[in-house]
């Protein structure tokens, strides 16, 4: 079941790549997608305890979060622009390292959280050990923002709904 859905996904990507729909190239696409599925399908969806249906539900819930993330990326770029173009000797820059605990269980949720922290204004995830994140923050205002756990709850609502 997982293999079939991976095959369909890869074939969809092939169609975007290819742009030619004659029989010869479509056959090549089918062969290629099947070949990649054969040799490396275990790389997608490492944790297969949940069914395909649950996975699809998770994917459906994802876009809203991604849109919110896009807005955050815009904010972080404006933040960088403002800092970079501020005159004088960069009054606002006050770097510090912070350790934060997270309640997320799954690896994928942690990955999502770490990348989201990297993309939101003023913070970068340096390291992740167990459930502890080491974060570098660029100014005092953003250090305060790290303690806020709204992002974590958003991710938990997507990937770990049954736990909460």
């Amino acid at each position: 079941m997982y293999r079939l859905s991976i095959f369909l996904l890869l074939f969809g990507i092939w169609i975007i790549f290819s742009g030619l729909f004659d029989a010869f190239h479509t056959t090549l696409g089918l062969i290629s997608a099947a070949f990649v599925t054969l040799i490396s399908s275990e790389f997608f969806f490492a944790d297969r305890s949940a069914g395909v249906g649950a996975r699809i539900q998770q994917i459906i819930r994802l876009p809203i979060y991604l849109l919110w993330m896009l807005y955050q990326i815009l904010l972080s770029n404006i933040h960088i622009l403002k800092l970079a173009l501020s005159p004088g000797d960069l009054e606002e820059v006050e770097p510090s390292l912070i350790r934060v605990k997270t309640n997320l269980k799954t690896d994928f949720g942690k990955w999502m959280l770490a990348n989201s922290i990297t993309l939101t204004p003023g913070t970068i995830t340096i390291d992740i050990e167990g459930d502890e994140l080491l974060i570098h923050s660029i100014s005092k205002a953003t250090s305060a923002g790290v303690e806020d756990d709204s992002m974590e709850r958003k991710i938990a609502a997507i990937f770990e709904r049954e736990n909460s």
Binding site: I73, L74, S76, N77, I80, L81, L83, A84, L90, V93, P95, T118, L119, P121, G122, I124, H136, I138
Partner: peptide, 17 residues
Amino acid sequence: FPDFYTRMHAAGKGDTM
């Protein structure tokens, strides 16, 4: 930016958007 970490902020985020 003054040190490696802050430069990394500019490099990593300034590019995505």
